[in-house]
Amino acid sequence: MENFTPVSAALGGVLIGLSAVLLWLTHGRIAGISGIVGGLLTPRTRDVGWRAAFILGLIAGPPIVAALAGGMPPVAVTSSAGLLIVGGLLVGYGTRLGSGCTSGHGVCGLARLSPRSIVATGVFLTAAIATVLVTRHLVGV
């Protein structure tokens, strides 16, 4: 467990939580990333403005923090191009079909004690752990 970083992890978690509280306080909306992005990709798109602004902030936040901290955080993507495409398709389709991802179900849903979110979080965590077990230990993609 030499990579374990509990303090920065919890601190980052609090910032993510504050973001969700801010969006709830000002817009009355749940900070679920797949829902915010997916809402722009439906036939009848509503409230483009705040969705686009949130996504812009999400993309711009990391380089700004990096500039303040004096260095880009490591982003190690080890997957092949094919795996990135398959993974992206599954994440995109799956989060819309399941009505949420790690932020909407995992953070906001668990905090609101939503039974739907508790089930979804248990299921996607189990599926992800099983996938890593298979790909990193059994077959080696």
């Binding site: 795996l83 993974g87 992206g88 389709y93 399941g98 790690t102 932020s103 979804a120 599926a127 996938t131």
Partner: peptide, 21 residues
């Protein structure tokens, strides 16, 4: 659908290590 969606998302997340946020 809700459960199946979560399974698909979990597989994609585990394959690459990235979720939407």
């Amino acid at each position: 659908n809700h459960v199946f969606g979560a399974v698909l998302f979990g597989i994609g997340w585990g394959l690459v290590g990235l979720c939407p946020g």
